[in-house]
Design a protein around this nucleic acid. Sequence first.
RNA 1: GCCCCCAUCGUCUAGAGGCCUAGGACGCCACCCUUUCAAGGUGGAGAUCAGGGGUUCGAAUCCCCUUGGGGGUACCA
Length: 497
Amino acid sequence: MADDIRVRIAPSPTGPLHIGTARTALFNFLFARHAGGTFVLRLEDTDVARSTEAYEKDILDGLHWLGISWDEGPGVAGRSEAGPYAPYRQMARLPDYAAAAATLLAEDRAYPCYCSPDELEADRREQEANKLPPRYVGRCATLTPEERAAREADGRPAAVRFRVRPGVVAWDDLVRDRVEIDTFNLGGDFVIVRADGTPLYHFTVVVDDMAMGISHVIRGEDHVSNTPKHILLFDALGYPLPAFAHLPLILNPDGTKMSKRKSQTAVADYIAQGFIREALVNYFAFLGWSPGTEEDVLSLDEIIARFDLGKVQKGGARFDRERLEWLNGQWIRRLDDDDLVDRLLPFLEAARIAGQVDHVPSPDELRSLLPIVRERIPTLAAIVDMAGFLWRDDLGLDPAVLVPKRWGTATTRDGLAAARALLAAHDGVTWEAEELEPPLRSLVEDRGWKAGDLFMAIRVATTGQTATPPLFDTLVALGRERTLARLDAAIARLPAA
RNA sequence: GCCCCCAUCGUCUAGAGGCCUAGGACGCCACCCUUUCAAGGUGGAGAUCAGGGGUUCGAAUCCCCUUGGGGGUACCA
């Protein structure tokens, strides 16, 4: 049974990997892996004008990065083509579409259409003026052989139109149950091959799904109204229908279909901001699906084990970045040390190139910091805000923030100087958090200060910021020399009394 | 305009006639912890299940209507 289950994701390389594509790919992948079926990746690159190799790479790399692997797919970016139904890119399958079109033409299930763009545009305008839904008027549907020959002789280019038969098309959608659509509302006979000979999406998708033995078509809800066209084509081509499942759409926060204008849609942007694959996959899976339990942090394998198309929601789901960030934090806390260090390093390198830090720590140094930074970074990129002061030569201290709210300049100078003296008494061996804290606590008590005030002054003096990991751990990470030097520099910046 | 689809806290959702005075999570608020920021813990506010009709002994769950929202209406995919 499972051998018969074949699903696919068919991205079009006309833009970077979109969140919606990634989510659809994920659901196909989850369905295939759960059932032990086969997941196919096919590139729909017939929109030659907009397709690029760079987008192909971005899409495949992005899916790969997410952990969504395919069993059959095209050769792109170093990967080699694999699978018994190659090629897996439509521009390489042109002969198949030509053959299928020829068959439909021969059986009069389709016909050549000589209407010019201007004629079609005029038809449309007239329909609009009469408040009628746009549909092909059928000018070329009943041409006699002589009339066709005359047009050919005139050198008029012909597109190929598929004859839409009257009646109702229905299917049992795996997520929305029974759907019925009257073919009258399809807009008339539709074009399957352009006048320049290149095939159109509705046609190629059916020919390919047929050729590749696709058993379940799992795609976005925006395709529901296209499905009747595909069913008609499957019928005309004499192929048994695959099962259809239409997933709810991912919506902008305002409830409209997700768009670049209102949301961040490129997966690459989320990666660049330090979201990790575990969180993204977990989040996407729960947009429109839930295991029906109260679990909410699940790994890819756990999701595969629980996945069920029947539990997919029918209504669209709004994208909630706050929830994604929470999940990202959850997963960052679950990563093991070496793994987290490996993922953090590229962000520090990027920060160095961007001039946010002056140097990048060694893996060992970074690993030693993990206990104090890990629960403070919601994204990998946040490491720069949280601990960037450790790798910055000049803090660019603002004397104004150096002085605690309850303190004046004089007290701050006094406090920092006293703290500096106490800290200087430590050597490299006693430079440990447990050793540094007691003397400063005593100092606070002797002077009748609040610990928070002194600690905040030291914090700002040594890090340049008011939110940092625990102070004494921070001073240890900074090291004795730099701590003392920064305190000196800070004291020097405070105007003398 | 026309066609199709959808409808539970602000958001993601549990719920498949009695277990629901509707559960969880994010976010929010308070408290605890605490040197800051987080993380964590505890508690709280938050949904008359869009509204109205039915069906039923009984409806968030089934049916109908209304309203609201979304998607589609290409020689794009």
